[in-house]
Design a protein around this nucleic acid. Structure first.
Lengths: 233, 233
DNA sequence: CGTCATTTTGAGGTATTTCAACGAAGGTGG
DNA sequence: CCACCTTCGTTGAAATACCTCAAAATGACG
């Protein structure tokens, strides 16, 4: 039995977003899901599935970071987003995945076949509500990305990216240090910037004394000015 | 009683996107929804709700075009997207709407209070599944927008915008003529371009003999080259 | 310790953005 | 019915920002 399927701790928001967090799943619902989920452990840089593959399951991230991306006809790579703990991914269209996903770090995934998921959801409206909330959250994530990429200045985009990771990143989110497990290329493909522009933007923010970058983390040195840059999107 | 609540004709895709269209709602489900929905008729340029308003209901577009946008702190306007027939809108966060919505044309809306919606969905897993599919569709829309805006050339963005409207636009979508009910400013705020850039892009596409713009519609003159431009995103 | 991928830095090209002014369309009132 | 006015759309020239191409430096890993 899968003990800690992260669904119950879903970063859920109700349809209205009002009220407290959604009630947790009952023990029977939890067991039901666990009985149809397969635990998968993947090492870093492993492909979970490719764009176009037959979509047979959805995944729940049980730990680690996954990147969702797509190779465009032009050869460029577009990063749809990153999936953290308790995030759902694997949405498909016409029976095929629309994005590719790859493990950025070592990850634990819970794999749930689509047919059995449909059945379970159809039988349990309350459980389905959790999924609905989760998908609603996806919409917000996607819109948030749109807001970030809409900015014209590279520094602003990088700052908002850091701010996003500070908010939605893994549980231990201190306010001054943010982990950046992904490469600069991944960041660039998410922000729609070249790696050079990302690097230069980081350089400027560093030179201004606002952020201190190391390879895979950032330290917020000047929260006031940082928030100012993030704010005027 | 509300006769033609458009939910049954939802442009639904299942979670997997596989298989045929979702089965229609039963007559009892339909009545149930209609009994909690209020029909609203709005004239063009009417605000449906403002960003930050207390979210008390979700809306289903029963005809016409609605624009979803947000005023940014910088003063710029960002358009999240357009809602056509059978589209759902009114998602909120922390009890408040995250976007403003405005009628672009005269519209018919079905207003469903959130509390009663939650109850109804909780009692009927199958009905809820329709909503889930609808929201999944929202995710795709949002990701599609990201792909469009990711392009660097204004002409490509405008072309993909036209192509998007050709596909998801109102039912009578001929392949050669696409309606553009929204203003150039609305298009620009969606594509993240200035109205001047939109105008110039339209001009180039016209001069190239690919598209013919009139105030509120486009004609695709050269489908081959049009598809070529749309394709290399 | 050496190799290789990743990241940083540099100079020039090209796109959109600005700022400004003009032309066209639609609605209102006389 | 026409005139006026407001809004929307188009066109032009300079500035800014990112992109591209190229090369060096850093860090990871065997």
């Amino acid at each position: 039995v899968i003990a800690n399927l992260p669904l119950p701790s879903i970063r859920a928001m109700s349809l209205s977003g009002a009220g407290p967090a959604r009630p947790l799943l009952t023990e029977s619902q939890r067991r039901r899901l666990a009985s149809v989920a397969t635990r998968v452990e993947l090492s870093a840089r492993t492909i979970v599935y490719h764009d176009g593959d037959a979509a047979e399951a959805i995944f729940i991230n049980g730990g680690g970071v996954v990147i969702s991306y797509k190779e465009m006809p032009s050869g460029k790579r577009r990063v749809a987003g990153f999936r953290f703990y308790a995030d759902l991914f694997g949405l498909a269209e016409h029976g095929a995945y629309v994005n590719s996903t790859r493990a950025v770090t070592a990850v634990t995934l819970y794999r749930i076949p689509l047919d059995v998921l449909s059945t379970v959801l159809r039988e349990d409206a309350d459980l389905e509500f959790h999924f609905l909330c989760k998908v609603v959250d996806e919409v917000r994530q996607s819109q948030r990305k749109s807001i970030i990429v809409a900015r014209r200045d590279a520094e602003g985009r990088v700052a908002m990216f850091v701010d996003m990771l500070r908010q939605i990143g893994p549980p231990p989110h201190k306010d001054t240090i943010v982990e950046l497990p992904m490469s600069r290329a991944d960041i660039g493909d998410f922000l729609n910037l070249t790696i050079e522009s990302v690097s230069r933007a980081c350089g400027k923010l560093k030179k201004a004394g606002i952020l201190a970058f190391s390879r895979h983390s950032v330290r917020i040195l000047d929260p006031a000015r940082f928030d100012a840059i993030v704010g005027n999107g």
